[in-house]
Design a protein around this nucleic acid. Structure first.
Lengths: 125, 125
DNA sequence: TATGTGTTATACTTGAAATATAACACGCAA
DNA sequence: TTGCGTGTTATATTTCAAGTATAACACATA
């Protein structure tokens, strides 16, 4: 599959799985309605325990990225939405703010921060 | 002092200390050359162990935010700089990218992501 | 009936986070 | 000198998250 894990990383495995699924959705590598490997299948593929994969899937479900059917398995949501949109936007803003604060504290110029953001965004307005 | 900790948070205490010192520098609440409380003093103030504060200070030093003198204590760096600027910028970009990917995957419109970033930045270009 | 989903439960190991205590190295001031 | 206040180092302990291991369950479908 499309996952590349770093077992030496300080980032938990279930978080790495979560992040890469999200990246897959954002980049349209994973299409709405598409099914993810079963917990046992993916666990076997990447050599981790069933519960580690399950934990990632549970979080992705709680966050609105996937839907889970007991038999059909785990599917990318048709229209992924955070359960609490306003709360999510607030949280996202504060996460942006923390990154920007850190960069400003390290003397990075506002223009450069903006440039970095634009490059990272992958879209031009 | 200026710190407000959440002992129930999943974010480690030493990280909360680190984040708020960075915010203080970014907002100019903490000026270059200004001294931070000693590890024992701050630990006592907020009711945590000496080592917890020390860990936060060590990280801030490694990241270039503060300088530490054995007698003078911990001071905000005159010109905070990341030890590896290029590496830091790469890292910052990928952190922006992850936030943006997440927002895109949740159907947030690019314009709104940009707006959120601008609001969070606190500066207009 | 058998298989493949996710789910739940229990127990275990490992390592990070945080605490507790003590001692050390160093410079400065009384 | 002596004492104090810095940060630093060293050990040991507790708590909890992360991850593993195994087993069983509920459910739909082939």
């Amino acid at each position: 599959m499309f996952l590349s894990l770093d077992f030496e990383s300080e980032v938990p495995i279930y978080q790495q799985i979560r992040l890469q699924v999200i990246q897959g959705i954002a980049s349209r590598t994973l299409a709405p309605g598409e099914s993810l490997p079963s917990v046992r299948q993916l666990a076997s593929e990447i050599g981790v325990n069933l519960h580690t994969v399950n934990k990632a899937y549970q979080i992705l479900r709680d966050e609105g990225f996937v839907v889970i059917h007991r038999q059909r398995g785990v599917l990318i949501a048709e229209h992924p939405r955070p359960p609490d949109l306003a709360g999510y936007l607030d949280d996202l803003k504060s996460r942006f703010a923390q990154l920007v604060a850190e960069a400003k504290a390290l003397g990075i110029e506002p223009e450069q921060i903006r440039e970095l953001f634009d490059e990272a965004s992958g879209f031009r307005l």
